[in-house]
C-alpha cells in the first residue's frame, strides 16, 4: 500500500467472465492501488468468483450472463452505493497495467478532470498489438468520432480502462450490455459537461487476451447494437 497518499476513496470495478486462473492476480495487484475492488462475476460458472473473493475482492454475481457492459454497470452502481469517490473500470484478463491507475486517478484527485480514459494510442506502444488490431482500432476511431459522437480529441474508441469522479459516474447512464458500452460511454462523455481527458496506458496483448478479446467481426455487432440502442426509449 505504498502509494496510498490517495485521499479520495477509489473503487476498482472489474467485470469478469471465466477468468479463473487470472482474476486472483489482477485483484491482488489492484488492491495495492485502490481502496476496494468489486468483481462482478458475469455468470462464469467456474472458480472466478471464489478466486476473486480469496484475493480480497468483493464479489457480485450475475444470475445470467449479461455481457461486459452490464457487469460493469452493476459493479459501478454497487461502488457508488458504497460511497466511492472515484470509480475505476478495469479489465479482468490481465491486459491492463495496474500501475496505470495512479495516472488515471491523479488528474481527478488534483481536480484537473472528472473523467480520465486510458488510451493505447498516446505515445506508449502496446506490447504485442498485431497490425490487424491496429488497423481495426484506427477504423473504429474514425467511425466513432464521425458517427457515434466520441469526443474529437480522443484516440481510443474501445478502451476499457477509465476512471470517473462519482458524480460523473452516476450521470453517465450507459445501457449497452455487451461490447458497445465503450463507444456509448464515450458518446455520453462527449455530450456531457464533464471534463474528460485521455492519458496514455500500456496494454499487454498475450495469446489469451487476444483469444478472449474482440475480433474484427464484432465491430458489426457493436455498430448494430448502437443503432438499436439509439432507437430505444
Amino acid at each position: 500500500m505504498e502509494d496510498k497518499n490517495l485521499h479520495m476513496r477509489v473503487y476498482a470495478v472489474v467485470p469478469a467472465y471465466k477468468e479463473e486462473g487470472r482474476i486472483g492476480a489482477v485483484v491482488r495487484t489492484l488492491l495495492s492501488h485502490v481502496d476496494r475492488v468489486i468483481v462482478v462475476d458475469d455468470y462464469s460458472g467456474d472458480g472466478t468468483a471464489k478466486e476473486a473473493a480469496a484475493a480480497g475482492a468483493e464479489v457480485l454475481i450475475h444470475a445470467l450472463n449479461r455481457g461486459q457492459g452490464a457487469a460493469l454497470r452493476t459493479g459501478t452502481e454497487a461502488a457508488l452505493a458504497d460511497g466511492a469517490e472515484i470509480v475505476v473500470h478495469f479489465d479482468a484478463d490481465g491486459q491492463h497495467d495496474p500501475d496505470a491507475i495512479p495516472q488515471l486517478v491523479g488528474p481527478i484527485e488534483r481536480g484537473e478532470a472528472d473523467i480520465v480514459c486510458g488510451s493505447r494510442f498516446l505515445g506508449v506502444a502496446a506490447v504485442g498489438m498485431p497490425r490487424s488490431r491496429q488497423t481495426l482500432l484506427w477504423t473504429a476511431q474514425k467511425f466513432s468520432t464521425a458517427v457515434v459522437g466520441m469526443p474529437r480529441n480522443f484516440t481510443d474508441p474501445q478502451s476499457g480502462l477509465r476512471a470517473m469522479r462519482a458524480e460523473a459516474a452516476r450521470e453517465i447512464d450507459f445501457l449497452q450490455d455487451r461490447m458497445a458500452h465503450c463507444s456509448e460511454i464515450l458518446r455520453l462523455i462527449a455530450r456531457s459537461e464533464w471534463r474528460a481527458i485521455e492519458v496514455p496506458v500500456k496494454v499487454r496483448y498475450t495469446k489469451e487476451t487476444l483469444a478472449k478479446g474482440q475480433k474484427a467481426t464484432d465491430a458489426v455487432g457493436i455498430v448494430w447494437h448502437l443503432f438499436l440502442g439509439s432507437l430505444q426509449r
Binding site: 457480485l60 455481457g67 452490464a70 452493476t74 450490455d177
Partner: peptide
C-alpha cells in the same frame, strides 16, 4: 428483443445488488 434484453439485465442487476 433488444428491449427485453435490457429488461432482463435490469432484473439480473437488481437481484445481484
Amino acid at each position: 428483443l433488444d428491449k427485453i434484453e435490457r429488461d432482463i439485465t435490469l432484473l439480473v442487476r437488481r437481484q445481484s445488488l
